[in-house]
Measured scan of single mutants.
Amino acid sequence: MTYKLILNGKTLKGETTTEAVDAATAEKVFKQYANDNGSDGEWTYDDATKTFTVTE
């Protein structure tokens, strides 16, 4: 399945997607991506749209 990440950071904004077997796997990928790019904030997940959002 395709999962989407929306970044609403102070310095990093945008979207990216990943293919993953489940939401937990996608979350690990996205959290590593956000960490690698210095983005940290409040995470939410919408199962209906398969979208993670991180807001700083």
Score class of each variant (00 low, 15 high):
E42M: 11
T17P: 02
T16R: 12
G38S: 06
Y3P: 02
N37A: 13
A48T: 11
F52P: 00
K28F: 09
I6S: 03
T44F: 11
A34F: 08
T11W: 13
W43P: 00
L7M: 12
Y33K: 03
D40I: 14
K10P: 11
K31P: 00
T16S: 07
T18C: 15
G14P: 05
K28P: 02
V29G: 03
E15S: 10
E15I: 12
T18D: 02
A23P: 08
T11L: 12
E42S: 09
L5G: 01
A48G: 07
T25Q: 12
D40P: 07
N8D: 08
Y3R: 02
M1W: 13
V54A: 02
W43K: 00
T53S: 05
E27L: 15
E19P: 04
V29E: 06
K13Q: 11
N8K: 12
T18M: 09
N35A: 15
T51S: 04
L12D: 07
D46A: 03
Y33P: 00
V21R: 11
N37S: 09
G41S: 04
E19H: 12
T17W: 13
T44S: 12
G38Q: 07
T18W: 06
D22G: 03
W43G: 00
D47F: 07
V29A: 07
F52T: 00
E42V: 14
G14K: 14
T51M: 03
G41Y: 13
F52H: 00
A48F: 10
Y3M: 02
K13M: 09
D40F: 15
T17Y: 13
K31E: 03
A23D: 04
F30Q: 00
E56Q: 12
K13R: 11
D46R: 02
K10I: 13
T44Y: 10
T55S: 08
A34N: 03
A26G: 01
V54L: 13
G38C: 11
Y3I: 03
A48I: 11
T18F: 11
E56K: 06
E15M: 12
Y33Q: 03
T16Q: 09
T17Q: 09
E42N: 09
A20F: 04
E27Y: 15
Q32K: 13
K31T: 04
K13P: 05
T11F: 14
A23G: 04
A24F: 08
T18L: 11
T25N: 07
S39M: 15
G38R: 06
N8W: 13
T55Y: 09
V21A: 12
T11S: 11
V54K: 02
K28G: 06
A34D: 01
A26N: 00
T49S: 09
D22K: 02
T18K: 03
F52Q: 00
D36S: 10
T17V: 08
N35K: 15
T55L: 06
E15G: 08
D40L: 12
T44A: 09
N35P: 03
Y3T: 02
E42P: 04
E27T: 03
K28W: 08
G14E: 10
